[in-house]
Design a protein around this nucleic acid. Structure first.
Lengths: 334, 334
DNA sequence: GGTAGCAGTCGAGTGTACCGACTGCTAACA
DNA sequence: TGTTAGCAGTCGGTACACTCGACTGCTACC
């Protein structure tokens, strides 16, 4: 069922490659000239008819060449031998991670740009979800007579910030007391399961402590997983139907959709989702290449590129794979 | 020179309004029917010929209607009576700021979405530049045996985070000592002019303190002013030339360009920049409506919308004005 | 089983004619 | 003098016919 004889496979590959290159339906004549296909155009025609019957190819109109279907692209990527990144790009990646500096957030944003540059596609980088880290420190800092900032540092190095309104008549000493109290009772606790803290014996201080705790506990619908999208302009060159561009950009603006899209694909064990495989209707003409990255061996986040179904899969797969590897190393080393 | 008699002004206004509405060159017949123009199409033709000679209008082809030039749009916006936001939109803004919650960053990101929704245009929100705030607190928190996080809280409530590598053999007590030392000597100092701190008498601690200070002092090319761009998909409906969309999206991806563009416009004392007035070549077919917002009476950041030159200026001006006002109030109150 | 060649299909490109929406101009009019 | 009606002219857009070229499927032959 999923098997094709050697010759059909070669012909299918030739069609896909040519179509990726030219974006034009490809005819038997071109295929016959392709390397790896050593038969006449007539034979190619016969085989292509078969491939069409089996759903790998499709004819936009009678008397036109063939275009790959989703199934055709799927076969193509499934039978790709492991692709390598061209030397120049590999070097670019190396350079990037050698020069890379700064905090994780910034690195991820720049990684998005890198991916987009490498592949000439739109790129998506999903930051690691809020970890199950433990609290290392919680500090209240007075900002004005009525407000303070609660700064919480987690064991994974992330920092959370919340603005807290000060109860009337809170002096510096009570703020300090609260900080001490919070740190004493909370440090080491898992971020997601903070225990209530005992009373301090002072009502105002208790109030302040409660407010801080509430800020840490109740996280309403903030905390949307952070996602960095880069190279959206490239979407506009990929399609000539402006309507398609609009729809895809619309999807990309909905961070939540993007995040769950990537997660879904990964969860299904895929590296590539083609057209309707993405499960998102407006992306019917797009394909997505993804890879997870790790921090200290643990699944952390996901990176990927999004482009038209007729994108350069070998290049995209190679770029995503290499970048996710390097990124894992970089983030693990710190 | 910049004056037009009453009738010409009415005709120009009619042309601009009709063109904004239909995106089609408008002919004398339509203008003659417009409210406020009570002359025949023949007279309109005569006047339009004049307006064209003076550079307010332009004919795409002989035998086509007229289209406003930049100068035409400029006259139109300069002679707009102060526009009001339609009731429904005003309500939307009110609701938004009533519901608004969370930290400043998140608010700005959501404000960008709001603006884009109100105007159906691409929106840009530039966060306040790093302030001249003073340091309130600097705390080092150990994350692992080799790394710590430096958390600095500024008087304006912002929090800065830097990862610091720990010198070999730094124990908790030295980290604590460093924190104490930094806080003691730096709190109250302006963020941008941190003084060197005296030695602690311990070499390792001094090393650690120096590293923290370096992290605070040396900010290489991080710190690009934060900017939130929303509704880029709407750019794709605004133009039918895909090439234009691509160019504009390309510009919007360069945060630095966007930030300085807005700043330039504000500095020139403008609220609206039309076409080449933006000073950015690829935006020749775009117009930008901007307004600054304040925090406690001080110029803080800028908001704006970007759209085609034939955008709905009254709506855009009203939306930007109202949102910037409300935002100022909201950010000042805290 | 593979191939050459032929008949047939259909999109894309081209030239022509026509229609409609304009304009500028001129002559009449208040 | 300023306004208007009407007319001649321009030109983009659409419809249509036609050709051209790139395909295909099929059949007959090797």
């Amino acid at each position: 069922m999923t098997m094709l004889d050697e010759r059909k496979a070669a012909i299918l590959r030739a069609v896909v490659e040519e179509y990726i290159d030219t974006a034009q339906p490809v005819g038997s004549g071109h295929v016959a000239k392709a390397p790896g296909v050593d038969v006449s155009s007539a034979t190619v025609r016969n085989e292509m008819a078969g491939l069409e019957a089996e759903g790998y190819l499709r004819q936009p109109h009678t008397s036109a060449g063939r275009v790959p279907t989703e199934k055709g692209y799927r076969f193509f990527v499934d039978h790709l031998r492991q692709p390598r990144l061209p030397g120049r790009s590999a070097e670019e990646v190396r350079d990037f991670f050698a020069r890379a500096h700064g905090e994780a957030e910034q690195m991820l944003a720049e990684t998005s740009r890198l991916l987009s540059d490498l592949t000439n596609l739109t790129s998506v980088v999903v930051a690691p979800p809020p970890t199950e880290a433990t609290l290392r420190s919680a500090q209240l800092v007075t900002i004005s007579t009525t407000a303070a900032v609660l700064v919480a540092v987690l064991s994974d190095g992330t920092v959370e910030k919340h603005t807290i309104e000060l109860p009337d008549g809170t002096g510096d000493e009570r703020v300090a007391a609260s900080t001490a109290h919070l740190t004493a009772h909370l440090s080491g606790s898992p971020r997601d399961a903070l225990r209530p803290v005992p009373s301090t014996g002072d009502a105002v201080t208790d109030d302040l402590v409660a407010r801080a705790l509430a800020a840490l506990t109740g996280r309403p619908h903030d905390d949307p997983e952070q996602v960095y999208v880069g190279g959206t302009a490239r979407m506009a060159q990929a399609f000539d139907a402006i309507e398609t561009v609009r729809e895809v950009l619309g999807i990309l603006e909905q961070q939540f959709v993007v995040v769950s899209l990537l997660r879904d694909v990964i969860d299904r064990g895929l590296h590539v989702a083609i057209g309707t495989e993405t499960g998102v209707a407006p992306l019917a003409e797009c394909a997505l290449v993804v890879a997870p990255y790790d921090i200290e061996g643990e699944r952390a986040g996901t990176i990927g590129v999004l482009g038209p179904t007729r994108m350069n899969y070998p290049q995209a797969l190679a770029a995503v794979a290499v970048v996710s590897n390097r990124l894992s190393v970089r983030l693990t080393e710190g």
